[in-house]
Design a protein around this nucleic acid. Structure first.
Length: 220
DNA sequence: CCGACAAGGTCTACC
DNA sequence: TGGTAGACCTTGTCG
């Protein structure tokens, strides 16, 4: 998987080309994300659960794991979730506990009226509030951004390993800069946003292009 | 191919 | 108060 840097190094030029070529797909995907909210609070909560499960795993694993407990996250029991995940799933003990704790916290906080609750927050504070909320377990800055993007709130950077590597290749950040603690996450995010703005790119489209490199074998 | 071990995002505990 | 080590766990990488 280590690629030949000389041939496949990510450049701005290449990025522009790929973004232009894939823009229809990318925009369609972003529109799909917005649809999640129209499906209701339960759909939104499941998206949050997906992010709890995907942290430090992968989107693929997050989906697979959620599928196994999909009928339980909204009002099912912890023991049942753990039991199902105990064979073959990563973090089978702690992540279901996060889901249940978060669910109870959100019941108290907003009666699970998640959409209204999110809508009531100032757009500029929404991500940070979720990330810093101690009652929302398993969700830090990266997954808070991921969650919001997945339900159609745009403009946040989802700084995972792959995106960070792309940003390093592009020279947006140095090789050693890492997104923890929170202040460094926000620093990197500002750099990415600045990079996008200076080059006329949309943050969310940029994120999806970089993501597609990972899954779509363009950089090989 | 195998075994060792690091990676990865977040939490809690502790300095 | 802020920073960091260790835990969570399996997967991916490396020797």
């Amino acid at each position: 998987m280590p690629r030949a840097e000389t041939q496949n190094r990510l450049t701005l030029e290449r990025l522009r080309g790929d973004l232009a070529r894939w823009q229809p797909d990318i925009r369609a995907r972003l529109l799909e994300f917005r649809d999640v909210r129209q499906r209701g609070d339960e759909a939104v909560f499941k998206e949050l659960c997906f992010c709890i499960l995907a942290a430090n795993s992968s989107a693929e694993m997050g989906m697979k794991t959620l599928a196994a407990v999909d009928d339980l996250v909204w009002d099912g029991g912890l023991a049942e979730m753990q039991s199902r995940l105990s064979k073959g799933f990563r973090y089978w003990r702690i992540r279901p506990a996060y889901i249940v704790a978060t669910r109870e916290h959100l019941k108290a906080a907003c009666g699970m009226k998640l959409r209204a609750w999110l809508d009531s927050m100032p757009a500029g504070e929404r991500r940070d509030r979720l990330a810093l909320d101690k009652g929302i377990k398993g969700i830090g800055f990266k997954e808070a951004s991921h969650f919001l993007r997945n339900i159609g709130f745009e403009g946040h950077a989802i700084l995972d390993k792959h995106i960070l590597n792309c940003l390093r290749e592009l020279g947006v950040i140095g090789a050693k800069l890492r997104p923890t603690p929170a202040r460094r996450y926000k620093l990197i995010e500002r750099r990415m946003r600045k990079f996008a703005q200076e080059n006329g790119l949309d943050m969310d489209e940029l994120d999806l292009v970089l993501w597609r490199y990972k899954t779509g074998k363009i950089l090989k």
